[in-house]
Amino acid sequence: MTRVTAVLGDITTQDVDAIVNAANNRMRGGGGVDGAIHRAGGPSILADCVARFPDGLATGDAGWTTGGSLAARWVIHTVGPVYPGERDLLVSCYSRALAVADSLGAATVAFPLISAGVYGWPLDDAVLAAVTTLRTATTSVAEARIVAFSPATLEVVEATLASSG
């Protein structure tokens, strides 16, 4: 069973096998988490995105690239839905990211809250989707770490972990 943990911090500095990027469909970098990962990881991430995803990536799907200059070896990119959107696509982001992690042999994976930023997904539901999916997935990932960017978000994640455990 996967251990789901929560930390306050910067996803780009997590010492894990892979970090998950909340990417856009074009897979050419962007703002928010996506921009931070591309800036911290360097140009090799973008070069790998261009090579691996010439036509971009569908909402709800996931794929991987090098981690570039990051502590993490890999970046698992996933494209979340814009709210209001299909919740099953949000759940698919977490499931597909875990499947990609399994294919890479990644034991530790750090996740942002997908779609909870500029894509406008309500925080409580975004956290519930993440926690439920990560806890119930069939995966070899030993630790799925949810990285909260603010203390208020960390509180919501920790409360959801405690109440759904």
Rank of each mutant, 00 (worst) to 15 (best):
V147C: 02
L154M: 12
V118N: 01
T139R: 01
A116F: 02
V50T: 13
V127Q: 01
A71S: 15
G80E: 03
P112Y: 08
G41C: 10
G105S: 08
D48G: 09
L128T: 09
E155N: 13
T153H: 03
S95C: 04
R26P: 02
V127F: 00
L104P: 03
G9F: 04
G29D: 05
G67F: 11
I19A: 09
T132H: 07
I146L: 13
D17H: 08
D88S: 14
T12Q: 00
S44K: 15
A97F: 00
S95F: 00
G41D: 07
V91Y: 06
G56R: 06
G30V: 07
N21V: 10
G105H: 05
P81N: 04
S163A: 12
V79P: 07
Y83V: 12
A144I: 10
R26K: 15
A152P: 02
L134K: 05
A152K: 13
I37T: 11
A137Q: 07
V141W: 08
G105E: 07
S164Q: 05
A47T: 11
D102E: 08
L104I: 06
V16G: 08
L8I: 13
D17P: 10
N25Y: 05
A58N: 14
G41A: 11
D34I: 03
A110G: 10
S103P: 02
L128D: 09
D10H: 03
R96L: 00
A148C: 02
F111C: 06
D124T: 00
P151R: 11
D34V: 04
L161F: 02
Y119R: 04
D55H: 13
S163G: 10
A106R: 05
T65L: 07
D34S: 12
P122G: 00
L113W: 11
G9Q: 07
L161M: 03
P122W: 03
A126K: 02
S140H: 14
T65K: 05
D15F: 13
A162V: 03
S115R: 01
L113E: 08
P81K: 03
G35E: 09
F53Q: 05
N25L: 06
T139G: 01
G9Y: 07
A6E: 03
L70S: 14
S95M: 04
T66V: 13
V4E: 08
A6S: 11
V131A: 07
M1S: 11
R52H: 15
L104A: 05
G41W: 10
A6H: 04
P122R: 02
R39H: 14
V7W: 03
L113I: 04
D88P: 00
S163D: 12
D125H: 12
M1V: 03
W64L: 06
A72F: 07
Y119T: 02
F149T: 13
S69W: 15
E143T: 15
D48C: 06
V4I: 11
T132G: 09
I146V: 14
